[in-house]
């Protein structure tokens, strides 16, 4: 299958500050891919570059095979965009904004929008500026669904949403994307609930990609190991296979894609007295913390 988005050797600096260097990734058709990372790792930078709001310092990105710096307006019709914070034309009301966007998109599905709007308890003449953050997110989502694009790019859609609306948003979006076979590229800094939405994830750390895998593979293979050790052991020696090994009050913990045997060999090799070695499966949020660390 052709990738919908490809980025090769993407590099960006703000002034002298390096955001990341030589990033390579692609988004396959029909998948929901989440770009996850802590604040400041360059998630929004990537979205801005993809939408042509930022000229990268180096590298190249294509969407539907076209260079994103000069994308054809016809191709743009196939891309829907949700801006960080569900920003929309808040000086319009829900009817005006629907009328506005409808004329730009030949495949516009008015019903998809009003279906969602009916769930909101807002008057048709109420200005978007006077709505709650959750209501605004639904308006933005409704517009994206009505646009009926092939690719959806969502920048930090969870920002400012309370858990109810976040859940609503996720459920609606997943159902929509899967039934209509849409490709979705999204970012989030809240990982909670994300496993219910995304198929694949890219986890960004400062300056690089930590991992790009499907969520199911990640949840199957990434484990946390805990064990009890002697108080005298202040820290664990580094190992390339381990993420964020730590000791806290005699409890050792480490994260790895390796199995239990590998961990036992490791502890043995370094003569670390231990007991109660246990592995546990993790949810996506814990995997994220395990990979990127708490700090």
């Amino acid at each position: 299958m052709n990738p919908v988005i490809t980025c090769t050797n993407l590099t960006h600096h703000y002034g002298k500050r390096l955001i990341y260097e030589n990033l390579n990734f692609s988004v396959p058709e029909g998948r929901i891919l989440g770009l996850l990372g802590k604040n400041g790792t360059g998630k929004t930078t990537t979205i801005n570059i993809l939408n042509g709001y930022l000229k990268p310092s180096g590298g190249e990105c294509t969407i539907f095979g076209e260079n994103i710096r000069h994308i054809n307006p016809i191709t743009k019709q196939r891309i829907a965009l949700l801006i960080e914070g569900h920003v929309q034309y808040s000086f319009m009301n829900i009817e005006q904004i629907e009328r506005f966007y409808a004329s730009f998109y030949p495949k516009w599905k008015k019903e998809a929008y009003y279906e969602l709007m009916d769930l909101l308890k807002v008057a048709p003449r109420q200005r978007i500026a006077n709505m709650s953050c959750g209501q605004r997110s639904q308006v933005a989502l409704g517009l994206i669904m009505a646009q009926n694009a092939d690719l959806l790019i969502l920048d930090d859609f969870s920002l400012g949403l309370d858990p109810g609306y976040r859940r609503l948003f996720i459920e609606y979006l997943r159902e929509y994307a899967k039934s209509e076979q849409k490709t979705v590229f999204l970012t989030s800094h809240i990982i909670q609930d994300m496993e219910k939405l995304i198929d694949d994830c890219i986890i960004l750390d400062y300056g690089k990609i930590l991992i790009q895998k499907s969520v199911s593979e990640l949840m199957d293979t990434f484990k946390k190991f805990t064990f009890k050790i002697d108080d005298a052991q202040p820290s664990l020696p580094a190992d390339n296979e381990f993420y964020n090994p730590a000791v806290y009050r005699g409890n050792g913990e480490l994260f790895t894609f390796q199995n239990k045997e590998y961990v036992e060999q490791y502890l043995h090799k370094h003569d670390i007295e231990h007991s109660q070695l246990m592995s546990e499966s993790l949810n996506l949020e814990d995997i994220f913390i395990g990979l990127t660390g708490k700090y």
């Binding site: 939408n51 042509g52 709001y53 307006p73 016809i74 743009k76 019709q77 891309i79 965009l81 801006i83 920003v87 929309q88 034309y89 730009f104 998109y105």
Partner: peptide, 8 residues
């Protein structure tokens, strides 16, 4: 950004 994303 919204404006510049329009297919024109």
């Amino acid at each position: 950004k919204l404006c510049l994303h329009l297919p024109l």
